[in-house]
């Protein structure tokens, strides 16, 4: 017992000492922070001048170079276009891109992931081949970081590998979707092809993205998908038709209001609310009065989008049902 007591006391003393060293570390952290803040204030104008193509970047070393790089990395997240290209050119010229490319081959996974992520901030297209390779890294975090960066850089070559990785669940789907979203319209043709894939999940994910990235002209194949065997696909197709504003699909969407799966009826209602048209109103009012909770609520809201006055009037009738009354109240707000 006495020995144990002694051991414990020693451990306690040791841990307190450890704690005190960590606290001591704070002075160093605070000092570093003050230096960095001063450097940020001093270098920000130079960073802005680089972005605005007014002046060449200064030659920097050490902490100043790091701070400048961080500033530009931060700016690369909020600016687009020529400004962003100038930032990428700077990182190339200082060898920062090469540095990160080397770190991408590190043995420690977190270093690879951080490097993959940073390459996206830097924005240099030269990093694309290495990042494409990193999509097959054995660690998920690295793959996800690489996917995100490929989206940020905007590489068309990444479209196919990203979609495959997303389908095979090797990269989280939300990360893949945003990367494709960042890449934008160049991804649409391939996505349209994939709407005919054998896997329902692939068809659903692709058609959903087409809704965000495409325009009304891309909606050709979509109405047929409203009769797909998978409910997820039908709902996603309806959602995208609404987003694309494809008024030619109106009749097909009105038919979809009778789908046997509620989520499809919800999506069709929403889409009709976005597309509009008097013909849609009859179907929507019917769903709002007779259907179950989610479709009825969606249909009532959609009807209110198309013709608020009509919904307010219809809500006054005795057989209106609670969903129309809710939508009417929201209109009057």
């Amino acid at each position: 017992m006495e020995l144990l007591g002694l051991v414990i006391l020693v451990l306690v003393a040791g841990s307190m000492l450890f704690l005190l060293t960590l606290v001591g570390r704070r002075s160093w952290i605070a000092y570093e922070a003050r230096r960095r803040d001063a450097a940020v204030a001093a270098l920000r104008p130079a960073a802005i001048e680089l972005i605005e193509d007014v002046a060449d970047p200064p030659a920097l070393r050490g902490v100043d170079a790091e701070v400048f790089a961080e500033l530009l990395g931060g700016y690369s997240l909020v600016v687009r276009g020529a400004s962003r290209e100038r930032i990428a050119a700077y990182f190339e010229s200082t060898g920062a891109v090469d540095e990160q490319l080397a770190l991408l081959r590190s043995r420690r996974a977190w270093r690879r992931a951080t490097a993959a992520f940073t390459l996206g901030d830097m924005g240099s297209p030269r990093a694309v081949p290495a990042l494409l390779g990193a999509l097959d890294d054995k660690r998920r975090a690295v793959r996800a970081a690489a996917a995100r960066s490929l989206g940020r850089i905007g590489s068309d070559d990444a479209i196919e590998p990203l979609i495959t990785a997303g389908v095979e669940r090797r990269i989280p789907r939300d990360v893949v979707s945003l990367a494709l979203f960042d890449i934008g319209t160049p991804a649409v043709p391939r996505l349209l092809e994939l709407t005919r894939d054998d896997e329902p999940l692939v068809r659903a994910a692709s058609v959903e993205l087409v809704g965000y990235l495409g325009n009304a002209g891309d909606s050709g194949p979509l109405p047929a998908m409203l009769r797909d065997t998978s409910a997820d696909v039908r709902a996603a197709a309806a959602g995208s038709l609404g987003r694309l504003g494809a008024s030619t699909a109106r009749d097909a969407l009105i038919d979809a209001l009778d789908d046997r799966v509620p989520s499809v009826r919800v999506a069709a209602s929403r889409a009709l609310g976005q597309i509009g048209g008097r013909r849609a109103l009859d179907g929507l009012l019917r769903v709002a009065q007779a259907d179950e909770h989610e479709p009825a609520a969606a249909a009532a809201r959609a009807a209110a989008r198309i013709d608020p006055a009509l919904v307010v009037h219809a809500a006054g009738r005795a057989d209106a049902g609670p969903y129309l009354r809710e939508a009417a109240d929201l209109v009057e707000l």
Binding site: M1, I8, V12, R25, R26
Partner: peptide
């Protein structure tokens, strides 16, 4: 006293470790 040292000491060890974690 040893008993007290152990029971209090162990608790102290854990709390200090938690504080160190927060510091870190």
């Amino acid at each position: 006293l040893a008993f007290l040292a152990v029971s209090i000491g162990l608790g102290l060890l854990l709390t200090t470790a938690a504080l160190a974690l927060e510091e870190f």
